[in-house]
Design a protein around this nucleic acid. Structure first.
Length: 576
RNA sequence: CGGGAUGUAGCUCAGCCUGGUAGAGCACUACGUUCGGGACGUAGGAGUCGGAGGUUCAAAUCCUCUCAUCCCGACCA
């Protein structure tokens, strides 16, 4: 491709709408253009990277024996009514009517459609296992699209679905997909982790997310620094009970006046104690009416996912209303405590381990200090209620947890028979009896990967593409080509040769000043740069520079092609 | 959904408080100079000031409504 024929401008100024670096750079480099909130056009440069990501996915899926299909973006409501998700999916599902007033949706995912295909085509256990995938546009009407293509409403996803005769076979297919994902993301040059995840509303048993580690990520994950390599979504990471036994009581129980000190922070600073010496009490709705109290150490945060799994607690978790709290305790939120409490109580392990702690007195403007379990109130029911924090021991026993942020680029699930039951997708087994197929589901955020790769690979000058997904491998910058016949000739010759040997080369043949070309090539993040100039030709050496390098190398003119082939092969290999 | 903010040239923004002929930089066009790290000069094109209504002799500016976009929040007692 010739840069002179590429009519999309780069921009020096950062567009006001872009907050994260990947979004800023994608707009500045002209990779995408916004059409509406969360909806983007991909320009030729951006599309080249997108296609390379897709191609890696395709190659690895095909190699694993998966079959590519292409399903419709527009789907009839009947299928969604059949699976029950017409009611349950909520406002993220974009619904529309056709001219005959029939209901349709724009697919946010394709479990229904693929299950419909499977029940029509798959009749016998002999046809299993089967694995279908597609790379296709999805639409989810996000509450708040942001960060450019990272959380867009319309986006490209690779979604795959496998069908099995048994749970054992599903497990095998799932394990295979996990390996495939690791290989794909490694090939793309991404630093990522496989992370245990909550199965959430999709249901099913096993589930893992693939997270690209990046500070701008929207997900919080707990990663062990030990040899166990433990990694889990924050929602799921268990907090182990403290090993040391509870200390003995040393202080008397006392009531102190704490006017208007309603938060842990206020109380701690007012009484000149640390937040971890306090206990806070949260009131949530009970599963069958009433309220349930949850006690946490003052410096810890409630984990809603863990709490809503407790017997007697409403799921999904809802905080109790002010009225309900008042009715249960006779006290306003802000001064609640476990002493003399009449409703059911769960206490986090760390709260159970406290001695001589401070908590609300269930009386306006009053707190208790020197509180001790057993002596002042009954031993509580212990539970894991909190989010893990930096430095907690790893649940697998070695090392400690670090809290990192991640961008979810892939998610694999075992769906089991949820959809095949609802939609009667059965095959006959060896005994001739119908069995609902076991399903696996495997997603990858293709467009999001492009943004995630930039979040991980950039500097002040711009993008630094991992070689396998760079829009071009080499940029050939010709200086003063309009005047210099020899520069023009050599540039054209190298351009043709590089294309012949199969290297993606971009020829910067624009009639622009050198500074503009250098700056653009760096903004665009092309891994290898070669400069063709009169100066170079006269000395017999051309300048070469890798995007990550800070100085130029001099390459003899007639070795340029071979050397580029060599560094290119090295670049492709190093990221596998 | 709750809160906050912003809509003025393709982009980044000033002008609004205090109403009186719509601006700058970048980008774009032409010409000239320049030519190895985002050049300079001259000339030029380009905006129904998000939209509608109102107040006024007069509205980008004041008021009302509306649309769009962005940010924060939607456990923390």
């Amino acid at each position: 491709m010739r840069w002179s024929g590429y009519p999309i401008n780069t921009v020096k100024e950062t567009p006001a709408e872009a907050e994260v670096i990947s979004h800023q750079l994608m707009l500045r480099a002209g990779l995408v253009r916004r059409l509406a909130a969360g909806i983007y056009t991909w320009t030729p440069f951006g599309l080249r990277t997108l296609r390379k990501v897709e191609q890696i996915i395709r190659e690895e899926m095909d190699r694993a024996g998966a079959l590519e299909v292409l399903m419709p973006a527009v789907q009839p409501a009947e299928l969604w009514q059949e699976s029950g998700r017409w009611e349950h999916y909520g406002p993220e599902l974009l619904r529309l009517k056709d001219r005959h007033q029939r209901d349709f949706v724009i697919g946010p995912t394709h479990e229904e459609v693929i299950t419909d295909l499977a029940r029509r085509e798959l009749k016998s256990y002999r046809q299993l296992p089967a694995n279908f995938y597609q790379i296709q546009v999805k639409f989810r009407d996000e509450i708040r699209p942001r960060f450019g293509v990272m959380r867009g409403r319309e986006f490209i996803m690779k979604d795959g679905y496998s069908f099995h005769i048994s749970q054992e076979s599903l497990q095998e297919g799932y394990d295979l997909m996990r390996d495939v994902y690791i290989r794909m993301f490694t090939r793309m040059g991404l630093e990522f982790r496989s992370v245990k995840a909550d199965t959430g509303s999709i249901g099913g048993t096993a589930s893992e997310e693939f997270q690209v580690l990046a500070d701008s990520g929207e997900d919080v994950i707990a990663v062990s620094d030990g040899v166990d390599q433990y990694a889990a979504n924050l929602e799921l990471a268990p907090a182990l009970p403290p090993k040391n036994p509870r200390a003995a009581a040393t202080k008397p129980l006392q009531k102190v006046s704490t006017p208007d000190r309603k938060t842990i922070e206020d109380v701690a600073s007012f009484l000149k104690i640390s937040a971890y010496q306090t206990l806070k009490l949260l009131m949530v709705e009970g599963g069958e009416g009433g309220v349930v109290a949850l006690a946490l150490r003052g410096d810890h945060d409630l984990n809603a996912i863990k709490a809503q799994k407790l017997p007697g607690v409403a799921s999904p978790l809802r905080m109790a209303s002010r009225e309900a709290v008042l009715a249960a305790t006779g006290c306003e939120p802000g001064f609640l405590g476990p002493v003399g409490l009449k409703c059911p109580l769960y206490a986090d392990h760390a709260a159970v381990a406290l001695a001589d702690f401070t908590c609300g007195a269930n009386e306006a403007d009053q707190h208790l200090t020197g509180v001790n379990w057993v002596r002042d109130l009954p031993e509580p029911v212990p539970a894991d209620l909190r989010n893990v924090i930096e430095g907690d021991p790893s649940p697998n026993g070695t090392g400690h947890l670090r809290i990192r942020r991640g961008i979810e680029i892939g998610h694999i699930f075992q769906l089991g028979q949820k959809y095949s039951d609802a939609m009667r997708a059965t095959v006959l087994d060896e005994a001739g009896k119908p069995v609902a197929m076991y399903m696996g589901c495997y997603g990858i955020g293709v467009t999001r990967i492009v943004a995630a790769a930039i979040e991980q690979n950039h500097d002040t000058a711009g993008i630094i593409w991992p070689e396998p997904i760079a829009p071009f491998t080499v940029v050939l910058i010709s200086l003063n080509a309009t005047k210099s016949e020899k520069v023009r000739k050599l540039s054209e010759q190298l351009y043709a040769t590089l294309q012949q040997v199969g290297i993606d080369v971009l020829l910067d043949d624009r009639d622009a000043r050198p500074g503009v070309k250098f700056a653009d090539s760096e903004l665009m993040g092309i891994p290898h740069r070669l400069v063709v100039s009169d100066r170079g030709i006269d000395s017999g050496q051309l300048e070469y520079r890798h995007r990550r390098a800070t100085v130029n190398a001099q390459w003899p003119v007639d070795e340029v092609v071979n050397r580029l082939l060599a560094v290119h092969q090295r670049g492709e290999r190093s990221s596998r």
